[in-house]
Amino acid sequence: MSGPHPAPERRPSPPPATDTASDVVRWAAFSCVLVPVVLLWYGTSLAGAVGTALGLAAVTGVCRILLRQSERGAARLLAEERVPHRGRHHRTGTGAHRGGRHSGATTPVD
């Protein structure tokens, strides 16, 4: 006789990727403003703070582009997984087994 079965563990689902990517970009934009202000507070030159802000903005822009590409790729993979695969006899495209005779390299020719 078996006892009561424990309920299966449920793991919290991760947040959607778009929310995470947006949060990352927001924090990066915030740091683009905050870091130069802190640098000025501690006595760095205005040119140095502006240069740092421009560098951080450039890195943030590139990261945003890469995150968007990653999101598109993930969405494409999810869409491909949802499409049902065709059976063996409904293949498309060209291949070695599609009609006609094929002479192999080891077949003697007279």
Rank of each mutant, 00 (worst) to 15 (best):
E9W: 13
V33Y: 15
P15M: 07
S70A: 14
L39Q: 14
T60C: 10
W41A: 12
F30R: 11
A21R: 00
Y42H: 10
A57F: 15
L34I: 02
A49T: 06
D23P: 00
G73Y: 05
R64L: 09
A53I: 04
H89M: 06
A21M: 04
G43R: 02
G99N: 11
R88L: 13
G95K: 08
R10G: 03
L39R: 09
R76K: 12
A75E: 15
T44V: 12
R68W: 09
T94H: 13
L39G: 07
G95A: 13
T18S: 14
V37G: 03
M1P: 02
T94G: 10
S45C: 02
E71C: 04
R82V: 11
C63E: 08
V59W: 03
L77H: 03
V109G: 00
V37K: 04
A58I: 13
A7S: 11
R82A: 13
G100C: 02
E71V: 07
A79N: 03
R26E: 11
R76M: 04
R10L: 15
G48F: 09
R72F: 00
C32K: 11
P36F: 06
I65N: 01
W41V: 00
S103Q: 12
R68K: 11
A29L: 15
L77C: 09
D19G: 10
G43F: 01
G55N: 03
T94I: 00
T20H: 00
V109D: 05
V59Y: 04
G93V: 10
V38D: 00
A29Q: 14
L66W: 09
T107G: 07
T44G: 01
S70H: 12
P8M: 06
Q69R: 15
R26K: 13
V62F: 08
A79M: 03
R11S: 06
P4N: 12
L78D: 14
D23Y: 00
Y42A: 06
L66V: 08
H97T: 14
T60N: 04
F30Q: 07
T92R: 15
R82Q: 11
P15Y: 10
D110C: 01
A28W: 01
T44F: 14
I65Q: 09
L54M: 09
R88P: 07
L56C: 07
V109C: 00
S103C: 06
W27S: 07
C32N: 14
A49C: 05
V37Y: 05
Y42K: 14
A28V: 05
H85D: 10
R26P: 00
P8W: 15
P108H: 09
R76Y: 02
Y42T: 15
G95M: 03
A79F: 02
H89L: 14
G104S: 11
S45A: 04
V35I: 15
L39A: 12
V109N: 01
C32P: 00
V50T: 09
